[in-house]
Amino acid sequence: MAEVFSVDPMVLATILGMGLVTYFTRVAGLVIVRFFTIQGRARAALEAVPAAVLMAVIAPTILATGPAESLAALITLLVAFRLPLWAVVVVGVISVVALRSVFGLF
């Protein structure tokens, strides 16, 4: 096993490369909206980003994994209109565990 504090130069270079390209992606959009006027339909497209990205990230999990995940997502969605965010997470986690054990029986 590698020593706790050992750092290989090649590993360090790889990490720095990953960090550099990741930082580029994190500030690129910031620079774009700062120097270009965003209005009309372009603005509407940008305002759709949060919902579109969040949905794209979770779609495979909530729609294409199994009935337990899809049902748990539906329950989570219903409580999300009423409860604070932390409670939504708790309900989601508990319902997926319960539903997985129910569907595991068949």
Binding site: M55, I58, T61, E69, T76, A80, V93, V96
Partner: peptide, 12 residues
């Protein structure tokens, strides 16, 4: 499922 759950909450 914690992350999908929080993302659902945020979508709402």
């Amino acid at each position: 499922f914690a992350f999908p759950a929080i993302f659902i909450g945020l979508i709402v």
